[in-house]
Write a protein that binds this DNA or RNA. Structure first.
Lengths: 351, 351
DNA sequence: CTGTTAGCGCTTTCAT
DNA sequence: ATGAAAGCGCTAACAG
C-alpha cells in the first residue's frame, strides 16, 4: 500500500477535434450535406452518403453537441434526478430508463439530491442550463419553483414512483398508500394488534408519507391505532434504522409487527432484533417495501412489496421521448404492485 | 390499480427563456457586461453588478450552457462512466464524486455500460459529443479506441478502482490483487487447504482478473493450487452466484473456503448454502470484497474487504477538476484497503 | 439531391 | 470599467 508522490501530467492536448467542415472537405461535399447524412440520411444520395460516412470514420468525427443544441434547440439529453444512489433503491428504475433512452439515441444524465428538494432544484437548474431536453423525477412532492422552472423553459417532465392524484403533473408509478394498506391488512389478518413504523422523514418525501398513511388507514379501518411512541423517523440507512428499532424494542408494550417504509428500514430493524436476541418472526414480524435483494437475502427472508420500478423506468423514458417527439402518450400510468410474503412475518405468539 | 387511458398533454410551451440580451436590456448594460458579471465579477463595478444580478433574478436567467460551451470550449460537465448501477457497487464512489464536483460548480453526468467495453466506448463518444469536459472510468481495462478518442478530443480522464502498473493512464484506486491475496492468506492461516472461487467473467474486468490472481498467488505461495472445477464464473447477480455455488457444493471433494470476487458473489454463495443446509462457517467459510451492507447484514455477517471507494471517488473528482483548471495533482494514487473479519469465516472442521 | 447563407446565445478580443 | 463586434460548429431555410 505505497503512497505515490505527486506526479505532474501534461496538460490536455488542445482540441484536435475535426469538424463538419473537415468532413465536408474530405468527402467533397458541403457541411449541409454532412449534416443531412447524420440527421436526415433519407434525403441524401446513397453514394454521397457512403463518401461522407467514410470521411466521418476516417476523421473520427463526432458532431459538436453544443453547437447542435444551440442551433436545433434540442440536445437529446434526458435528465434523471433521483433522491439517492445508496442502496440501489432507484438503480433498477434508472437502468431501465437508460436502456430505453440509449436505444432511441438519447443520453441519460443522472444526478442525486440526497432527499433535499432545494438541492434538487439547484441541480435541475444546472441541467436546464446544460441544455437537458426533458426530465424524470422521483416522487410527487417538489419545490414549486421546480415546476415553474420547467414550465418557463418548456422542458417536459414526468414524475415517477407515484401518480399525482390531482392530475396536475404527468406521472407514472404505483399507489404507495395502497401498498402499505394491503401489507398492514395482511398483518392484521395474521392477528397482530400492536404495530410499529420505521419511516423516512416525511418532509418532501411523498413515498414515505403515503406509505405511512396507508398503514394508518388500514389500522383505522380495523379499529386500531398507531401509538406515537411506536413511530420512529430517521434517515435511510441500516445504522439509523437499527437505532430506531432499538427504541421500539425498549418500549414497555412492544409492537408485535413493525412496518418499514422500505426494505432498508426493515433490514435495519432486523439487525437490531438479532443483536437483542429478539426472534423474527416469533417475537416480532417485520415487513419492508421495494422487494430488494438486501431484504430477500436476509435470514429469515424479508416480507416485502414488489413495486413495478423497472416498468416505471421504462414507461417514463418512453413518455418523455414521445413528448419530445410530439407523439401521443399516456401521461398518467398506475402500475400494479404485489405483496411478497416471506419468513419475516407470522402470527403473533400468544402471551 | 386502474389502467389509465391515453391522455394527451399539451406540447411543451415554446422557450420563453430569457437571454443575456434580455438581462442586458433590463439592466441597461451590454451583453458583454452580463457575461462578465457571471464569469469574472471582479472586473465589474459593484453597482453595475447589483443591477445585473437583479435583472438576472427577475428574469430567472439561466445562461445557455450550449452557447457557452460552444464559445468557451468547456461545459463544466464531468462524465462518470461505471459498469453498473446494480447492487450499488459503485454508488458510494459516484456519490462522493458528485459531492466534490457539485461544490466546485461542475455537473456530473453518470452512465452505466453493463460491463460491456464496446458500450462504454459508445456512451463515452456520445458524452464527448455532448461536450463533457473530462471523464472518470472504473477499472484499468478499456477499449484502446476509448483512449484514442479521449486523446483525440483532448479530454482528461482518470481510471479508478485500480492503479495502472504501467503508469500509462492516470489512475486512483487500490491493489485488487493484494486484497484477495491478503484474504486468502488469512484463510490459509485458519487452516483451509481446499478453495473455491466465485468470480465475475474476467473478460474486460480487471478487478475480477486481479482479485482472482491475488487468490491464486497466495495459494501458490503456500504450495496450494486452485482446482479448475472449484472455479465458477458468472454474471454479477445473487441468482447467478447461488447457482455457481450449487455446483461447488455438488463437488465430490468440496472446498472448505470460498472466495467471492465481490460481496454479491459471496452472498449468492451464502444463499445456496442455506438452501442446501450447509452451515457457514462450520462447513464452509465464505468471503467477499467491497464490504457492502448486503454482506454485513447477512447471518452470519460476511467477512469482506473494506475498499476505499469513497476516497477514490473524492480523489478522482479532485483530480479531474485540477487538470481541467491546469493545477498540479497526483496522477496516481494507491489507497489502502482493510480486511473485515466477521462470522462467515472460521477454521475448517476436522473430518 | 445538394450548396449557400444566416444565425442560435454566448464569450472574448479590441477599442474606448 | 464597459461596449462593439466577431465568431464557436452546427442546422434550417432557401435556392438551384
Amino acid at each position: 500500500m505505497s503512497a505515490t508522490p505527486t506526479e505532474q501530467v501534461t496538460a490536455p492536448s488542445r482540441d484536435k477535434r475535426s469538424s463538419a467542415k473537415d468532413v465536408a472537405r474530405l468527402a467533397g461535399v458541403s457541411t449541409a450535406t454532412v449534416s443531412r447524412v447524420i440527421n436526415n440520411p433519407e434525403q441524401v444520395d446513397a453514394e454521397t452518403q457512403r463518401l461522407v460516412r467514410e470521411a466521418v470514420t476516417k476523421l473520427r468525427y463526432v458532431p459538436h453537441g453544443a453547437a447542435r443544441a444551440l442551433r436545433s434547440h434540442r440536445s437529446r439529453m434526458v435528465g434523471a434526478v433521483v433522491p439517492s444512489f445508496e442502496y440501489a433503491l432507484y438503480a433498477r428504475t434508472t437502468s431501465a430508463m437508460q436502456a430505453v433512452l440509449d436505444a432511441e439515441g438519447y443520453s441519460m444524465v443522472l444526478a442525486e439530491h440526497h432527499y433535499d428538494l432545494a438541492a434538487e432544484l439547484r441541480i435541475t437548474k444546472q441541467l436546464v442550463g446544460h441544455g437537458v431536453d426533458a426530465f424524470v423525477f422521483v416522487g410527487l412532492h417538489h419545490d414549486p419553483a421546480l415546476f415553474a422552472l420547467l414550465e418557463n423553459y418548456g422542458r417536459p417532465y414526468v414524475l415517477t414512483w407515484g401518480v399525482d392524484p390531482m392530475r396536475q403533473h404527468p406521472s407514472i408509478g404505483f399507489d404507495n398508500r395502497a401498498a402499505t394498506f394491503a401489507m398492514t391488512q395482511h398483518l392484521i389478518g395474521l392477528g397482530h394488534r400492536r404495530f410499529g413504523l420505521l419511516s423516512a422523514p416525511t418532509e418532501g418525501n411523498d413515498r414515505a408519507t403515503e406509505r405511512g398513511a396507508g398503514m394508518r388507514a388500514a389500522l383505522a379501518q380495523a379499529g386500531l391505532a398507531l401509538a406515537d411512541e411506536c413511530v420512529q423517523y430517521g434517515p435511510i440507512s441500516l445504522a439509523a434504522s437499527a437505532a430506531m428499532m432499538r427504541k421500539l424494542l425498549a418500549l414497555e408494550h412492544r409492537p408485535t409487527a413493525v412496518v418499514g417504509t422500505n426494505d432498508v428500514f426493515a433490514v435495519g430493524g432486523m439487525i437490531a432484533c438479532r443483536e437483542a436476541g429478539v426472534r423474527i418472526p416469533e417475537d416480532i414480524s417485520i415487513t419492508g417495501v421495494d422487494n430488494t435483494d438486501l431484504g430477500a437475502t436476509q435470514t429469515p427472508a424479508l416480507t416485502s412489496i414488489r413495486t413495478p420500478i423497472v416498468e416505471v423506468g421504462r414507461a417514463a423514458a418512453e413518455q418523455v421521448i414521445a413528448r419530445l417527439e410530439g407523439k401521443e402518450h399516456a401521461a398518467f400510468q398506475t402500475l400494479p404492485f404485489e405483496l411478497v410474503l416471506r419468513g419475516s412475518t407470522a402470527e403473533p405468539q400468544k402471551n
